[in-house]
Nucleic acid binder design. Structure first.
Lengths: 131, 131
DNA sequence: ACAGTAATGATTATCATTTTCAATAAATTT
DNA sequence: AAATTTATTGAAAATGATAATCATTACTGT
C-alpha cells in the first residue's frame, strides 16, 4: 500500500472524529483540505484501511456504512432514528465479551457482531414537539 | 391491512422455507404460483409483514436483507462468503440472552442485534479445491 | 532518472430498494 | 347490491450507496 496524500488526509481526518462518519460525510470534510479529491477515492481508501486493520468499518443494520478511526475492538450503539453511532464504554460489556468468547467455539462461529440500538437524545427531543 | 392473494401467497411461501430468502429469491418462488406478481409487491409486503411482526426482517451486515417466516426471536449465523443465513439452536445462547437483557437498561439501549458469522460447509469445500 | 506498479479523479455502472402512478381490488357505507 | 372510499397492485422509473472503469498521474525500488 503506497503512501499518498489523500490516504494520509482521509486517515487523519477520520481519526480526529468520534462521530463515526459515513464515506460521504468524510468526503465533505476531506474536501475542505483537498478540494479536488473524488468520492471514489474516499470509498476506496476507507475500504483498504479497514481491510488492513488501521480503521474499523461498521456495516451493521442495513444502513450506510460508517467508519471508526479507532481500530481497537469496542462496542457501538446506533440511533434507530438518525443512524448516528456512538462508542460504548461500560464495565459490564466485559461480561458480554466473555460470554461470546465462550460461545463462538461451541457454535463453530468465527465471530459475532453486536450492535446496540436506542433513540439518541437529539432524536428524542425532536419526537416530542420540536422539529 | 387488507387481505390480498399476493400477500397471502408471499407469506405462505416464506413460511415453507427455512432458508431465509432475500426479497428477489422469494419473488422467483412466488412467481411460480403467480407469474404476474411484481418485485415491488414482494418488497412492499415483506416490509409490511415485518412491520406488524408476522415475519422477521434480517438486515445486518451490509448485505441484502433476508426474511424469516418464523417471527419468534432466535439467533442466526451468516456465512461470510455466500451470505446464507441459518438458524441457531443452542442451549448456551440462553446465557447470552440473559446477559444482554441485563445489559440493555444499564446502557439505556432498547435492543441489541447479534449476528454470528462463519464460513458455511458448502463454502469451505469450495475454498479447498473445487470450483 | 527510469521502469514498473499502484493510486487518483472523473465518470459511468451496478445493485438493492423505494417511489410513482394509473388501474384494479377490497372494504365500507348506503 | 350499488356506490363510495381506501388500499393494493403491476410496471416502470427513480433513488442512493457503493463499486468498477480507465486514462492520467504519483510512488517506489533499483
Amino acid at each position: 500500500m503506497n503512501k499518498t496524500i489523500q490516504r494520509q488526509t482521509i486517515c487523519e481526518e477520520l481519526c480526529k472524529l468520534t462521530s463515526h462518519p459515513t464515506a460521504d460525510e468524510l468526503y465533505d470534510i476531506v474536501k475542505k483540505r483537498m478540494p479536488q479529491i473524488s468520492l471514489g477515492t474516499v470509498y476506496r481508501n476507507l475500504e483498504q484501511l479497514a481491510e488492513c486493520g488501521v480503521i474499523l468499518k461498521l456495516e451493521t443494520a442495513g444502513r450506510q456504512k460508517r467508519f471508526d478511526g479507532n481500530p481497537a475492538p469496542h462496542h457501538h450503539i446506533r440511533c434507530k432514528v438518525c443512524g448516528a453511532v456512538r462508542d460504548l464504554h461500560h464495565e459490564s460489556l466485559k461480561e458480554l465479551d466473555e460470554c461470546i468468547a465462550r460461545l463462538l467455539p461451541e457454535l463453530g462461529a468465527n465471530r459475532a457482531m453486536i450492535e446496540f440500538e436506542d433513540i439518541c437524545p437529539e432524536c428524542k427531543i425532536d419526537h416530542h414537539g420540536n422539529k
